[in-house]
Design a protein around this nucleic acid. Structure first.
Lengths: 148, 148
DNA sequence: ACAAGGTCATTGCACCTGCTACGAAATTGC
DNA sequence: GCAATTTCGTAGCAGGTGCAATGACCTTGT
């Protein structure tokens, strides 16, 4: 004899934040494992590297603002990457609070291998999803532009 | 005189796994903070609770299979929830490897408050995004059904 | 009936994260 | 010119996470 107060009916599978989290995990998992096994790189580190490959020298603050990471995440990812010899830092002489991060030659070599993997992954995703990909992107576009 | 080997051009903002991760974080952040501040509940814990509210008594294994969590995540979330008095466990007499998790009365009360918050959040998201929401969901549907 | 193998849940370990506080440097306001 | 405030990056701490190993239990095959 259990008295069950009537709970609202709520299905996790229909909850958009949950669906997005699963989709994010699902799409990044396979590739993330590749960089991890092959290069020993985590996702935060990868984001920093991609930003540096794309935008050249930048500060922690700059990356933070443009790569959806917190300041301390960038700082720690950068530390690990420095220890691995993939990036280097110098002081900015115009504002000595800022640091300038950039890829080392070794980092550039690694990115030359890594970026094509990411491009291939993206291309495969687009191909597999077909029209649904366009819809997904339209939806994401609206969502990402929204509260910003 | 810097010699820069030509790296492939790759923009993180156009990378679907990244976009999904940002979107997931963005849509869950506000609500997650609410449960955290108000009830002291993390996202893994919330998922377990929602599953129990929806599906009644279940085992760790069952949750694992249906809620996109690893077994150890469920186990640890359940441990914390038990310590907080929100769920309880008994042995399954038919198979003593399995445990049966269920909400306590206190857990049910909390969910009676928490679930409407989630429903409201979902409704607001749908409203804010309008047509883009439908597109997003169509895309997610294809993606989530895909490799499964 | 019992050994071999499989399933279920938990835990130890090392690492990662989130938060907050901090020191150094620049900017603002008087 | 100099205190008060703000900005930038880092680090301590507590707690969370991922992985592999473990122990308890069930199932299968002989």
């Amino acid at each position: 004899m259990t008295d069950t107060p009537p709970l609202p009916d709520f299905d996790l599978y229909g909850f958009t934040p949950y669906r997005l989290a699963v989709a994010a995990k699902h799409t990044s998992e396979q590739l993330a494992r590749q960089y991890r096994d092959r290069f020993g790189i985590s996702i935060p580190e990868w984001r920093v590297l991609v930003h540096l490959a794309h935008s050249g020298n930048t500060s922690v603050r700059d990356i933070e603002a443009r790569v959806a990471m917190e300041k301390y995440e960038v700082s720690r990812a950068a530390k690990r990457l420095r220890e691995a010899g993939l990036i280097e830092r110098k002081e900015n002489p115009e504002d000595r609070r800022l640091i300038i991060l950039s890829l080392t030659v070794e980092g550039q070599k690694m990115m030359a291998e890594l970026l094509p993997m990411a491009k291939a992954h993206q291309a495969e995703l687009e191909k597999r999803l077909g029209d649904a990909f366009k819809q997904l992107e339209a939806g994401l576009e609206a969502l990402l532009n929204e509260t910003k």
